[in-house]
Design a binder for these strands. Sequence first.
DNA 1: CATGGGATTGACT
DNA 2: GTCAATCCCATGC
Length: 195
Amino acid sequence: MSAPLAAGFFERDVVDVARELVGATLALGDCAGRIVETEAYDETEAACHAHAGVTARTGPLFGPARHAYVYLSYGIHELFNVVTGPEGHGAAVLIRAIEPTEGIELMRARRPGRRDRELCSGPGRLTLALGIGLAHNALALDGTPGRPVLRAGEGESPQLLSGPRIGITKAAELPWRFCERDNPWISGRPPSGGG
DNA sequence: CATGGGATTGACT
DNA sequence: GTCAATCCCATGC
């Protein structure tokens, strides 16, 4: 098992981090998966929560890189992000889909009645499958047991597709969604643009 | 202080 | 395809 991705990996431009996180591993406890879809959010564009400045909700976005930002979407779904860039700059990568690699039986138990493809193909789905929740918000993702952790992928870098982010109305023109090409575990339809 | 809108999902027509 | 669930917070009066 490789070491957790270093804090320095995340202390860079959020778009670069989002692109390079495809193919990495996200794990919590006995469950893990290969990241196959991400999106970048930055305070300089209106779709990012950090665009409106520091609030009680968005505080973690402006904190240290490699910390978690977990928030409640539509009052129901808990969405998991990793904070990027220098402290004081609000930016994060949203993890939108993973391909289950470990603990799939526990994932099935957590999401009864779902097909395997529906376990982790969506930002609100993968948090349920892995057991990520608001309790993990603002925590450092440094490998501490009981917290989510990100590890480098193995082998060659995956081929990427990029396109507009999903489910937003502002700054919808930015091609900041990244998916692994030909991977069936992504959410929704694959984007049409190259990496 | 009242209102409206989400970085979504799943059930239903 | 359509739509409700449910809550934080930004916006406007």
